[in-house]
Computed example of a mutant assay.
Amino acid sequence: MTSRPPATTTLWRPTGPEELALVRELGWRAWPPRLPEQPIFYPVLNEEYAVKIALDWNVKHSGAGFVTRFEVETDFLSRYPVQQAGGRTILELWVPAEDLDEFNAHIVGTIEVVHEFRP
């Protein structure tokens, strides 16, 4: 009897160059711990929203913006209700910083950069 791989959900994360360097150091398989002023990790549920944040926030504040895509086990994500952070397509998950190690353990595959923006 063969077991099927777990169902996954695609998430996106807009990020700046500093966070992306830490992801690279982690072998593209995990997100780095949050800083004390970052109590929540915010992956988003659609690519368009991630692109908007990367362009409007990361490029302005960090000189570059990146959009990453990654898969997380769907069953695990069910503990985090989808948050509507504005319009109907502005959807996020709010993962408490203390859950990030467990969240990372449920990433399937690697974190990929799918867009890069510079001024």
Rank of each mutant, 00 (worst) to 15 (best):
A50K: 04
P14L: 03
F103Q: 02
F117C: 08
L77C: 02
N58S: 12
G65N: 03
W57I: 12
V82Q: 04
V51C: 07
N46Y: 05
L91A: 14
E37C: 15
E18G: 09
W57E: 15
K60M: 12
F117P: 03
D101M: 08
E73V: 09
S78N: 13
E98F: 12
A54E: 03
V82S: 08
T9R: 14
E116K: 11
V113D: 02
F41C: 01
E71H: 05
F70D: 01
T10M: 05
R34P: 08
E92M: 11
F66V: 07
T110H: 04
Y49E: 07
P32N: 12
E18R: 13
P81C: 14
V67H: 06
H115T: 02
W94A: 13
T74I: 05
A21D: 06
A64L: 05
T110M: 05
A85P: 02
P14W: 00
R79Y: 07
V82C: 05
E47T: 04
R88H: 15
E25C: 12
T89C: 09
A97C: 13
W31Q: 01
Q83D: 13
E92L: 11
R69S: 07
E73Q: 09
G27V: 08
E71C: 05
P81K: 11
E102H: 05
P43V: 09
R4N: 10
W57Q: 15
A30S: 11
V67E: 06
V82A: 04
G86D: 09
I107C: 04
E73M: 06
D75V: 02
W94L: 11
P33K: 10
P32V: 04
V23S: 02
V95Q: 04
L55G: 00
G27Q: 09
W28E: 15
D99G: 05
E92W: 03
F66E: 02
P33F: 12
P17D: 10
W94Q: 15
T68C: 07
S3A: 14
P17Q: 08
P33T: 13
G86N: 08
P96A: 09
T10K: 06
L100P: 00
A21N: 07
F66R: 03
L91F: 11
Y49D: 01
E48N: 14
H106M: 10
G27Y: 10
I90F: 13
L91H: 13
T74M: 02
P17V: 06
G65D: 04
N104W: 10
P36Y: 01
L22H: 11
W57S: 13
P96W: 06
N104Y: 09
N58D: 15
G109D: 02
A30F: 08
L55T: 00
Y80Q: 02
A85Q: 06
I90R: 11
Q84N: 15
E98K: 12
T8L: 07
S78Y: 14
K60D: 14
G27M: 08
G27C: 11
L45A: 01
I53L: 10
P39M: 08
P6N: 01
T110Q: 08
